[in-house]
């Protein structure tokens, strides 16, 4: 085993010496410090291709129409994509809009974001506070609560789809308790509830960990001083923990909003593509469908929707950066 790894390492070393040759030549040419350009280059090429260029393209495509893919085959149409997306009788009523699906998606996303962010924040905060009190088993429970975060959206979607199925465990429990069998994912309000529920179940552990880190940063001696004063634990939470944690919680809350707006994968798997009907169709799904899975691929319209979502996320990000800076002091 040891011989094998030594052998592999020697091969790797030979290979690296081979790669080294041109870099030595280059180093001689451009000098030591400028070798930094060489080392960032591969990363920057990929970043440029798959991040910077697409950002530029997203904006460019948003102003073009037609169904051709290549930018030079596409006519410039100015703000038409935006004005069509925003063309509504009333923004409160998606049916009055030219693109009713877009506005349905916005309404759905809005409610989802509100409920998911609030729910996750409250659940994660309670869990973090409870975990922080533990003297024994902290690591174990932390791991248990974190575990779902590591699952894939498809796995989470399928596990819950099975759990909520017509013949699933939940229905069996409901029947045992004298309830009525419900096909949860085919009823508008139930399916919306479960989409939010599953999201909280899926992502809560991540936010719990972050809040827990914030809790652990609160100096112990503040609590000890409070204990000496005879402050009850309940009061401690409201008077010490929460105020000291608030800057942290705000950052987490905005992060949650940012993540929630991008809801797609697990909801898509769970609800078979945003169903029933369009009850769980969200903005990312709208963009995805418009660009990739409809008969005519409306890249311009999808890009315009992306740009709008990007602007909303940018605003949230700026708020978050501002809050994070404030939290440091």
């Amino acid at each position: 085993m040891k011989n094998l790894s030594a052998f592999l390492f020697s091969i790797l070393d030979k290979f690296m010496r081979f790669i080294e040759l041109p870099t030595v030549y280059l180093q001689k040419k451009i000098g030591v410090q400028r070798m930094g350009y060489l080392f960032v280059a591969p990363n920057m090429v990929l970043f440029s291709l798959f991040v910077f260029l697409p950002v530029g393209l997203a904006i460019a495509y948003a102003f073009t129409g037609g169904t051709n893919m290549l930018i030079w085959d596409r006519p410039f149409i100015g703000f038409e994509n935006f004005s069509r997306l925003l063309n509504c009788g009333s923004y409160m009523d998606p049916a009055s809009c030219e693109f009713d699906l877009f506005w349905t998606a916005i309404h759905n996303t809005w409610w989802y974001t509100l409920l998911n962010a609030t729910g996750t924040l409250v659940m994660a905060l309670i869990t973090a506070v409870v975990l922080n009190r533990l003297t024994k088993g902290k690591a174990l429970f932390r791991s248990i609560f974190f575990y779902p975060v590591l699952l894939s959206p498809v796995v989470v979607g399928l596990i819950w789809k099975w759990f909520l199925a017509r013949d699933g465990l939940l229905n069996s429990l409901v029947l045992d308790l004298g309830g009525e069998r419900t096909i949860f994912l085919l009823e508008v309000w139930w399916s919306r509830f479960w989409v939010v529920y599953v999201s909280i179940w899926f992502h809560m552990g991540f936010f719990t960990l972050i809040i827990l880190a914030g809790l652990q940063a609160i100096p112990r001696d503040i609590y000890e001083a409070a204990k000496v004063d005879g402050t009850s634990e309940w009061r401690q939470f409201w008077r010490i923990t929460l105020p000291l944690l608030t800057p942290n919680l705000l950052v987490v809350a905005v992060l949650l909003l940012i993540r929630s707006v991008q809801v797609f994968d697990e909801a898509w798997v769970l609800t078979d593509g945003g169903g029933p009907g369009t009850a769980n169709t969200f903005i990312v799904q709208f963009i995805y469908q418009t660009a990739f899975s409809s008969e005519v691929r409306l890249y311009g319209l999808a890009s315009a929707a992306s740009v709008l979502m990007g602007l909303a996320l940018l605003a949230l990000t700026l708020i978050q950066v501002w809050l994070a800076k404030k939290a440091e002091y």
Binding site: P54, A58, Y61, I258, I287, Y288, A291, F292, S303
Partner: peptide, 15 residues
């Protein structure tokens, strides 16, 4: 770090 794939997925695919 803060730029999500969902915002650039259309042009990224075109690339």
């Amino acid at each position: 770090l803060m730029l999500p794939l969902s915002v650039i997925m259309v042009p990224a695919f075109i690339v």
